[in-house]
Design a protein around this nucleic acid. Structure first.
Lengths: 132, 132
DNA sequence: CGCCAATCGGAACGATATGGTCCGATTTAA
DNA sequence: TTAAATCGGACCATATCGTTCCGATTGGCG
């Protein structure tokens, strides 16, 4: 039940971005310096965040990233899922069930529900709160 | 935000144990056969669960394990923590802070709170519910 | 029109820790 | 006293995570 390092870094970077003026262009370089996250890693993370629709990238000289949504409409769950993939306690909670115990597993139906609760806890925390 | 395989197995085994008669001696062999978890792995898990105080072990021939508490007083959080260690989103939430970003990390104070919420969600689910 | 700045995407490497297995120590029953 | 059956800890293979680097693409600027 831990966040991966990458997800943790992503949260730190997003909060750093949230503290900036809305509309300001943010490069991976700047956020890297501000947060202490190594530049190559920061680049990779912003790619993931962009693919997930949390950031919009602007290419070319003077380009950079922008928050795709207001800070109050981005949740901790969004950030985590952008980096780690869907939040689910077990992989059988979502499609693929290549689990050896799948045949006579009597816990499976409960896990989906519990996962929802956890996701709810993370979804209730907005980037706005985290950046303060 | 996923459970490790071992934690998942532990939950399956504990629910299997919960479905048995209270007071019945449970060997690792039996639970292994019943759940499909490989025997050596099952042994290792029951050790962890014993150390955590969820199971009490009885050595010698005809020995076995017993649930240390009633099923309604064992939560999903207890099982997960027995195998994975304390539930916390980041390692800085608990003592050791050998994190490169620790110096100017402005998110740290929030993480402890969020971790509590997640733990609450898992703590609200009892073994009694899971075993049904 | 050509150059430069900065992002995007993928591939490859190394480290950590998970997952699985084995063997020794201990205890009770016969 | 013997022996079977269990708990308990140590060990090794493996997979995923984390990190880094490089090339391709795009848009602004001189």
């Amino acid at each position: 039940m831990r966040l991966t390092h990458l997800a943790d870094y992503a949260v730190v970077m997003m909060t750093a971005a949230a503290r900036r003026e809305p509309g300001e262009r943010l490069s991976a370089t700047i956020l890297s310096e501000e947060t202490g996250v190594p530049l190559p890693t920061a680049q990779k993370l912003m790619q993931s965040l962009g693919r997930a629709g949390l950031l919009t990238g602007q290419r070319g000289a003077g380009g950079g990233y922008l928050l795709a949504r207001p800070v109050s409409e981005i949740s901790l769950a969004d950030i985590v899922e952008a980096v780690e993939g869907p939040i689910a306690l077990t992989q059988c909670s979502e499609g693929a069930s290549d689990c050896a115990l799948d045949a006579h597993c009597k816990v499976k139906p409960h896990m989906g529900l519990v996962g929802e609760k956890v996701r709810g806890a993370l979804g209730a925390v907005s980037l706005k709160e985290l950046s303060q």
